[in-house]
Structures are given as structure tokens and as C-alpha cells.
Design a binder for these strands. Structure first.
Lengths: 194, 194
DNA sequence: GACGGGTCTAGTCGTTGACAAGTTGAGCAC
DNA sequence: GTGCTCAACTTGTCAACGACTAGACCCGTC
């Protein structure tokens, strides 16, 4: 990073993405500036545009990367075989807390090029993985309508993660750690009947 | 509105807020520009700053107004006495769909002055109203821990509303209207055992 | 050793948020 | 009425931004 730069950066695309992740995680997408990212990478102010076209393009790339990371995380949980529905939700919440910048951008269509084919594909894949994950669960409490169960599980996890990140649950959480708290919440709704 | 303007606008604060609501509902908070709002209200570019200090101040005011509207909506539902927990959630979802701009801003701390006392008060009030609403429900399925039940109900409704607004549930919804769909979802989790 | 395409620089335009200083006009004291 | 005060608003300015353009640079290929 301190080495003298040749004319070509080497991996400017990744460098800009990483810088963006840092900025967004700290101050939100509103604080993002292409010129600032260029400065951080040590290149001229117009260089990033060559990789991402424009600001929305950069955020689209970030969203796609987020969907890939989420799908991978789901794959790990499902791969273990010990997959209870709660753990899928916990995985979702953990993803949101571990990758706040990606999570922030993934579900904000006003920030990206909504029609970018790679984004649409990534979104579809996430939806499919989610639904398949729910479908693979024992029927039990979740009812027969897989679509409805998916909506329920997704809404619960997404809402929890979003509210937690916005610091809206601090008072209600009463000091409990987010993952445990969500596990309890999910167990209350999806778990065995008391 | 078409009348010749005197030096004083009359109610510039309201006019700017309304214009902001329109812009945000259409293109998101990122598309907001104080100068554009001023233009729409027919005043100079610096006039809005006199009422809101800065952009974050405007969004803070919007968030506070949103909390007030939400609390009022809850009051109506709870006032009827026919308050089942699902209907509280439906009310939340309907609020998000009816007031997209307010909803968008209310839970995005990076957009406002997080420490503004009127905002903190409004947030606290929303949290309290929510919790009281849940507490007033028959114990039944929701368990004994009111805090946990509030988190569950809030997360579910918030997640559903957010995902719906981001167009992430289109495929899973299969044409069903959002309110009915949420009612079913909530019934699946909170309702009587099938 | 020319060349061609991907990568980056340098310069520019129009727009924005924030700030400072001045202007207007309504309400109030006398 | 006269003069005062103060909030509401205007005008002018600045640095920063996103987007665009033309051109410089570098590497692999023929």
C-alpha cells in the first residue's frame, strides 16, 4: 500500500470496493463519494468510473457481492445437515451484523441499477436459496405453504436485523446479545409448541 | 398556491416537508436536494435552511412526524378494543405502505441528527406504544416475555414491510395483496395452532 | 516494432450543501 | 405614527461532488 505505484494500480476494482465497504459501514451510503474512494486508493478522481461506470454501478456491484456472500453463508449452514429453521435465521442475522455495508446496500433499490442483469440474477438466487432452505425444514410448526413460511422466516430475520442495526431494539434487548436474542425470538414463533 | 407570493411564504416549513415527502416517496432520500425543494416552494435556495438548519435537520423533522403518525395509527387500532395482535401488525404494514417517505426515513439513523431530543422522544414513544400494545394482547401464543413478544411482532412486521417495499417478495407473494398476505403470515406464527 | 484495447490522468461543466451578510416585513412599545 | 426587534427570506460565495471528455500510458499480440 505504501509501495510506489506504477501507472496501473493492480486491482483498483477491489480496492475501491473495500474502501466503499469501510465508508458505508461507518457512515452509511450517503457518505459515499467516488472522489474520496479514488483518493483512498491513490488514483485520480475519475479512475473508479472506469470500473463501475457511475456511483450506482459501484453500489450495484456491492449488492451483488453481498448476495453471493449471503448465499455462501447459507450454503455452509445447510451443508452441516443440522439445519433447524432457527439457525437459518441466525445465519441471516449474523450476516447482517458481520457485513453491514453489504446488507445496507442489498435491499435498497433506489441506490443501484435495479435492472442490471447480474443483480437480478443474484437476487433471484438469494430468493431461491432462502425458499429451498425453508422447504428443506421439517414441516412441523411452519405449516404447509412453503411460500408463506419463507415470507414469515425472511421477514422475521430481516426485520430483526434491520431494527437491531438501527439501534431500535436496545431497550427491549435488555443487554442480551443479538444472536441469542434472535434465537429466542425465532424459537418463540417457530419452535415447538409450549 | 398559485396566488402571488408575498415576501413571507406563509408556511414554508410545511411546504418543504410536503415536497420532500413527494420526492422521497418517488426516488428515495438520495434524490433529495434542498435547492430543489426550495425551487418547488418558490423560494430562494437558502430559505429552507432557516427552518431545518440543514438536510439532516429536515430528515429528522420528517422522522419525528413519522413517529407521530405511526403512534396515532396505533392509537386508532387499540381504541377499537377489537385488538388482536395480527391487526397491530397489519396497521404497521399499512402505515409503511401509506407513508413510504416517512417510513423510509424513520429507521435510517445515518440520515438524521440521531441525538436530536425531539427525535429521541418520538422514538421512545413509538417503542413504548408498541410494547404496550403487545402487552395488552391475550397471552396465548405470544408467551410470557412481553419484551421478546414485542421484538418478535415488531421484527416480523418491520421485515415484511421493508422487504415488500424493496420489491423482494413479489415472487413469493404470487399476486396476493400485501395486507392480506401479512395477515396470513402473522396468523401462521401468532395465531391459533392449525 | 507497430498497434490496439484496457487502464488511468487531467481538465471541465453543472449542481449541491453550507455558510455569511444583507433585506424585508410583521408585531410591539411608546 | 415612529422607531425597535426579530424571524423569515434573499443574494452571493465556496469547496466538493458526479459525470463527461480527450488524451496519456502500458501490456500483450501480431
Amino acid at each position: 500500500m505504501a509501495a510506489p505505484r506504477s501507472y496501473h494500480h493492480g486491482d483498483l476494482r477491489r480496492a475501491v470496493l473495500d474502501a466503499a465497504i469501510e465508508v458505508i459501514a461507518e457512515d452509511g451510503p450517503g457518505a459515499l463519494s467516488l472522489r474520496d474512494l479514488a483518493r483512498r486508493a491513490g488514483v485520480s478522481h475519475a479512475a473508479p468510473a472506469h470500473h463501475f461506470k457511475d456511483k450506482a454501478g459501484l453500489l450495484t456491484a456491492l449488492a451483488v457481492e453481498g448476495h453471493e456472500l449471503l448465499a455462501a453463508a447459507f450454503g455452509e449452514v445447510l451443508g452441516t445437515g443440522s439445519a433447524r429453521l432457527e439457525e437459518l435465521g441466525v445465519c441471516y442475522v449474523r450476516f447482517a451484523l458481520d457485513h453491514p455495508a453489504h446488507f445496507e446496500v442489498m435491499f435498497r433499490p433506489d441506490l443501484h441499477h435495479r435492472d442490471a442483469p447480474e443483480l437480478v440474477a443474484a437476487q433471484d438466487r438469494t430468493g431461491r436459496v432462502l425458499r429451498d432452505g425453508v422447504a428443506a425444514m421439517p414441516a412441523g410448526r411452519r405449516g404447509d405453504d412453503t411460500g408463506l413460511a419463507t415470507i414469515a422466516a425472511w421477514s422475521l430475520a430481516h426485520g430483526f436485523a434491520t431494527l437491531w442495526r438501527g439501534d431500535n431494539l436496545r431497550r427491549l434487548a435488555a443487554g442480551r446479545a443479538p444472536e441469542d436474542l434472535f434465537r429466542n425470538t425465532a424459537a418463540l414463533l417457530f419452535g415447538g409448541r409450549p
